[in-house]
């Protein structure tokens, strides 16, 4: 049974592509056959996060226009054979693909892959409408920030109007220390407003940035809090019941340990 998932958020910069890349790699690590589709035509960057830019030959537009077969355009991941990327064009714009094209594409890919994950562009215009067209499930990514939550709310409304009722939430870039001190919206407030099933709480982690620069998603990294959080989300997508993790805080004890460790090195 295969599933088509769209990762969306409304607001930009909350971590849609990062989430897509991490879920893709995470599911592939579990042995699933996964294809990632970048629909952010003109502003593609999912290939960068996966470190696959130099391997791109054809793109989504070529497939949609019928210049090449899907198989030819898919880029295989370096490490995980069962993970493929369908990149988009950096020169065309969103009008080059329409919802019907993507729907047909998803139905084609569905036959062969366990998971089709679509990276949606920011906004609620044509690009968004195209990206969600073929999806069974939507994952809304938000941040503990009023504007991100407001936009997520709007997106959930839009998804509802497009009859996408299976919607899940990931709260990204949480700073536990700030939540504790009351400077950041807490998870209960966000869940209260958005009122959809939350499948992940990912802390803000510098490793996400450094790993993105290297083109290796953080999900395999056991030392990273965000990596663990993404692994948990992957588990939950596969139907496992995993409790939300407690975030480690940079408390006094932790700092002391760090200082101790440093002095030893």
């Amino acid at each position: 049974m295969s599933e088509v998932i769209v990762v969306t958020s409304g607001k930009g910069g909350v971590g849609k592509s990062t989430t897509t890349a991490n879920l893709g790699v995470g599911l592939a690590m579990r042995g699933k056959k996964v294809v990632l589709i970048d629909t952010d035509t003109g502003l593609r960057n999912l290939d960068l996060l996966l470190g696959l830019e130099n391997r791109i030959m054809y793109d989504l537009i070529d497939v949609v226009d019928g210049r090449v077969e899907i198989k030819k355009a898919l880029v295989r991941h370096k490490k995980y054979e069962n993970l493929q990327l369908l990149p988009t064009s950096q020169v065309k714009d969103k009008s080059a693909v329409n919802p019907a094209d993507l729907m047909a594409l998803c139905d084609e890919l569905r036959k062969e892959y366990d998971f089709v994950i679509i990276d949606c562009p920011a906004g609620i215009e044509q690009g968004f409408q195209t990206a969600i067209a073929g999806a069974d499930t939507a994952i809304v990514v938000t941040m503990p920030e009023v504007s991100a939550v407001r936009d997520a709310d709007k997106i959930i409304g839009e998804l509802g109007r497009s009859e996408k009722d299976n919607i899940k939430l990931i709260i990204n870039r949480i700073r536990p220390a700030m939540v504790d001190s009351g400077e950041m919206m807490d998870m209960d407030d966000i869940n209260d407003i958005l009122a959809i099933k939350c499948i992940g709480q990912v802390p803000d982690d510098i490793k996400v940035v450094t790993s993105a620069n290297r083109g290796e998603p953080v999900v395999g990294d056991g030392d990273s809090q965000a990596g663990k959080a993404y692994e948990n989300i992957v588990g939950r997508l596969l139907g496992e019941d995993i409790p939300f993790m407690e975030f480690e805080k940079e408390g006094f004890f932790k700092k002391l340990m760090k200082a101790f460790k440093l002095s030893k090195d």
Binding site: R150, D151, D153, K154, I156, G157, E158, G160, A195
Partner: peptide, 8 residues
Amino acid sequence: EHTVRGGE
């Protein structure tokens, strides 16, 4: 009979 979300 549903939550009225932002923009509605």
